[in-house]
């Protein structure tokens, strides 16, 4: 009984020692790698610490095997990302896509201005009209002006897509860089934390001006004018 009690106390102490060493070595590695922790190096440290321990419990062995499997999985994902994230995608596809989207904004702006030029000319030509013809002309031109608002909305939506593409590029760059230099990662910028999100109307964090720049919402989620009036005036 006594021997068994001693044994059961000795094992946790050894584990605590291993855990301390593991934490210290990982912290040291992080400090030397500017806060990043290459998976391969982390596994080497874990192996080293576990091998140095005289007693490796069944849980320890299981943990090591799980970490190995996780490592293999990460290596596989890394290879997939590197295979897809070629220079062609980075230097050609994404810039081309954003250029094309910019061109759409420009083309729709030009078309909208051409439509408005024409409508303004029609309005001018109808200056002398009175009564019903004048009212009909005014009604028609108003509808055209209202419809021209599409350019503003589509422009904002396309700008959102361009921003999303750039964010994807930025994040994949950061991910590739985090996998280590051995894959020839480009000089990726450090990953930036995702912007603070607050649920519509029930934010728990303080809402910053930045959080409020979302552009047009989809029809299914956008507030109607009546809902906005209710929020403003409680009507």
């Amino acid at each position: 009984m006594v021997r068994s009690r001693r044994k059961s106390k000795a094992v946790p102490r050894a584990r605590r020692g291993a855990a301390r060493e593991l934490r210290a070595r990982i912290a040291d590695l992080r400090a030397r790698r500017d806060g990043t922790l290459p998976v391969r190096d982390a596994i080497a440290i874990i192996d080293d610490v576990l091998a140095a321990g005289r007693r490796i419990s069944a849980r320890g062995r299981k943990l090591r095997s799980e970490i190995r499997r996780l490592s293999e999985f990460i290596h596989a994902v890394r290879s997939d990302i590197v295979a897809v994230w070629t220079d062609e995608v980075k230097k050609e596809f994404i810039p081309t896509a954003t250029d094309e989207l910019d061109a759409i904004i420009e083309a729709t702006a030009e078309a909208t201005n051409a439509i408005m030029d024409a409508v303004e000319a029609i309005e001018k030509a109808g200056d002398g009209l009175t009564g019903e013809p004048a009212a009909k002309l005014s009604e028609g031109t108003t509808k055209v002006y209202e419809a021209c608002g599409f350019q503003d909305i589509t422009g904002q939506r396309i700008t959102k897509v361009i921003k999303a593409l750039k964010e994807i590029e930025h994040r994949v760059d950061a991910m590739v860089a985090a996998f280590g230099e051995e894959i020839g990662a480009p000089s990726a910028k450090a990953a930036t934390p995702a912007p603070a999100k607050t649920k519509d109307g029930e934010g728990t964090k303080p809402v910053t001006d930045e959080d409020l720049l979302n552009g047009p919402q989809l029809k299914s989620t956008a507030k109607t004018q009546a809902e906005i009036d209710a929020l403003l005036f409680g009507t």
Partner: peptide
């Protein structure tokens, strides 16, 4: 504006 979220309206108010 196209910004139609509640927090936008409340902030503006």
């Amino acid at each position: 504006t196209a910004e139609s979220k509640s927090e936008n309206v409340i902030t503006a108010k």
